[in-house]
């Protein structure tokens, strides 16, 4: 249980850092300031929140002694990550923001960061690994 929590927290933090780095690179590349629509704090908190949701899913499996369903849980995480990209596509930004067409390119990749880190860190927290 502790392992799952640490994995969730660490993947949340790494995902938040990656999101902020990507935000800064994207802002530098497009010369557009996205602070008014997507701040680094929002990126960090959303990343940690998403990873904690995955953690809760894993904790639920652990509690129910159904860890063999991890594959199904991962597929569910993947499905939710994919479905969540419709959010930035359909999102209406404040009308004062001049470049709404650049927003999906910023936000969509970020929606996969939490799951990527959560899956990538899995082997490091697996008990009984060689």
């Amino acid at each position: 249980m502790k392992n799952i929590l640490f994995r969730g927290l660490l993947s949340g933090i790494l995902s938040a850092i990656s999101g902020i780095v990507y935000l800064k690179i994207y802002e530098g590349g497009t010369m557009v300031d996205f602070e008014s629509v997507l701040s680094p704090i929002a990126v960090a908190s959303t990343s940690i929140f998403a990873c904690m949701l995955m953690t809760l899913g894993y904790m639920f499996l652990f509690k129910m002694r159904k860890m063999k369903w991890k594959g199904a849980m991962n597929l569910l995480i993947l499905l939710f990550s994919f479905l969540s990209i419709f959010g930035p596509i359909a999102f209406t930004l404040p009308l004062e923001f001049d470049y709404p067409e650049l927003f999906p390119g910023l936000a969509i990749p970020m929606h996969f960061f939490p799951a990527l880190f959560f899956f990538a860190l899995h082997p490091f927290f697996e008990k009984g690994r060689n």
Binding site: I89, A90, F91, T92, L93, P94, L95, F97, D98, Y99, P100, E101, L102, F103, P104
Partner: peptide, 8 residues
């Protein structure tokens, strides 16, 4: 500007 690039 509709606030959404695709709509624009």
């Amino acid at each position: 500007n509709t606030g959404n690039g695709m709509k624009n």
